[in-house]
């Protein structure tokens, strides 16, 4: 079985983010890391392989990322967790790509790779759109099992079974392979790369791909090909300085007074 995991490099979610004068995310202003939420997808891929006979059984894990040169660092992190190989789609023309372009590029790469199972995170912590996986599903007409809190692959039956966790409750879902599964952060505890893993990752292959390799014209993606346009941005008005009281036995009542004044009760 061939598993492909979509991972993105993002500014550290602990950092304050801002837009650059060019109206795109200022990626220089924060450390770049592997999207925390994609670590769960990498971990789940490793567990699926381990539960099905391991690498010896012929299962492989390939990471797929579209991003600038330094996205390789994020790929190395995933490789050091235990993935076997990585594909890096890197092309100057991709700068400023929106969700439609990104999903198209990833879909073309997936078509080339022909994996049996595609795993993704629920959201990239920078774009926060949560739309890429369903867009890929729509483009490739592959079933999408979203919000998976549990994933079981039945290789002989050629299907994947998940538990979908939503507000409505827990839904058991299934689909034939190949399929796309989006995993939630409660599914597992991602492992820390071991020293051995980090050393081994240095020798694992990262294959570079350009737009030409995927048969996509440069003007169809990036800022020029974008389907939406940022007109302007502004810092949100700062919240007015609030009241801060130290409880000396009656702060709960003061709180009620405040709520009453604001007509919230």
């Amino acid at each position: 079985m061939k598993i492909l995991v979509c991972v993105k490099q993002v500014p550290d979610s602990w950092a304050e983010k801002k837009l650059s004068p060019a109206k795109v995310l200022d990626r220089e202003s924060a450390d770049a890391v592997l999207n925390d939420l994609d670590e769960y997808a990498v971990e789940e891929a490793l567990r699926i392989v381990e539960a099905n006979g391991g690498a010896e059984a012929g299962h492989t894990i390939t990471l797929l990322s579209m991003g600038p040169e330094r996205a390789q660092e994020a790929l190395r992190k995933g490789l050091s967790m235990g993935a076997d190989a990585a594909l890096h789609i890197h092309d100057g023309a991709l700068a400023g790509s929106d969700a439609l372009s990104t999903s198209r590029v990833l879909a073309e790469a997936i078509k080339k790779e022909q994996p049996d199972l595609i795993l993704t995170g629920t959201e990239s912590t920078d774009a926060r759109m949560s739309v890429i996986p369903s867009m890929i599903s729509e483009r490739l007409e592959l079933p999408h099992l979203s919000f998976a809190g549990d994933v079981q692959v039945d290789i002989s039956a050629g299907k994947v079974v998940t538990k979908r966790m939503t507000d409505e409750g827990v839904e058991a879902m299934e689909a034939p392979l190949p399929a796309i599964v989006t995993v939630i952060e409660k599914i597992n505890e991602p492992r820390y790369p071991s020293f051995k893993g980090i050393m081994a990752a240095k020798k694992k292959p990262i294959t570079q791909m350009s737009l030409a390799d995927l048969g996509i014209a440069p003007n169809e993606v990036g800022t020029g090909g974008a389907w939406s346009e940022v007109k302007d941005f502004a810092l949100a008005p700062a919240r007015g300085a609030g009241v801060k009281v130290v409880d000396e036995g009656s702060a709960g009542s003061a709180l009620v007074e405040f709520l009453a004044e604001k007509r919230l009760i």
């Binding site: 801060k244 409880d247 702060a251």
Partner: peptide, 22 residues
């Protein structure tokens, strides 16, 4: 930093007092 009304205190004292007041 983002509070309109902040209480520095123990929630186990402040919340029940607020509940009773409401």
């Amino acid at each position: 930093d983002i509070a309109d009304f902040g209480v520095v205190g123990d929630l186990f004292a402040v919340a029940p007092q607020a509940t009773a007041g409401i």
